[in-house]
């Protein structure tokens, strides 16, 4: 109970003080601007990270498909070549 009451008290005190400082003090305004921009920066970074991850995933998928196809073709051609060699030997 005391903890909640103290949070109630300090939240009202902080609100009151900050509201008057936002109205009067340029430093506090700058701090808030920085905080909001930092949050914005964070949001942009998250978006960039998500975009990069998506791109990487797409690239990996593309790469993943190509090697398999190429490997498959190589293996098949090698197998065919081996078969032909065996037949010639026979």
């Amino acid at each position: 109970m005391n903890l909640t009451f103290s949070i109630v008290l300090f939240s009202i005190v902080f609100t009151s003080v900050l509201v008057s400082l936002v109205g009067n003090n340029a430093t506090v305004r700058r701090t808030y601007e920085l905080g909001l921009n930092f949050s914005m920066l964070f949001r942009i970074l998250v978006q960039k990270y998500q975009k990069a991850r998506k791109l990487k995933k797409l690239r990996n998928e593309a790469l993943f498909k190509e090697p398999i196809q190429s490997d498959y073709n190589t293996v098949i051609s090698e197998l065919n070549a081996n078969k032909e060699e065996d037949e010639i030997k026979k």
Binding site: T4, V8, S11, V22, V28, Y32, E33, G35, L36
Partner: peptide
């Protein structure tokens, strides 16, 4: 509260002061 306000409200140059006030007003009661 600051990132919460940032994430909830649209970014507008005209209402910057409003965003500062919104970030500062968190009284419990």
């Amino acid at each position: 509260r600051v990132p919460v306000v940032r994430a909830s409200m649209p970014n507008s140059q005209d209402h910057k002061l409003d965003l500062y006030y919104m970030s500062a007003i968190v009284p419990k009661g």
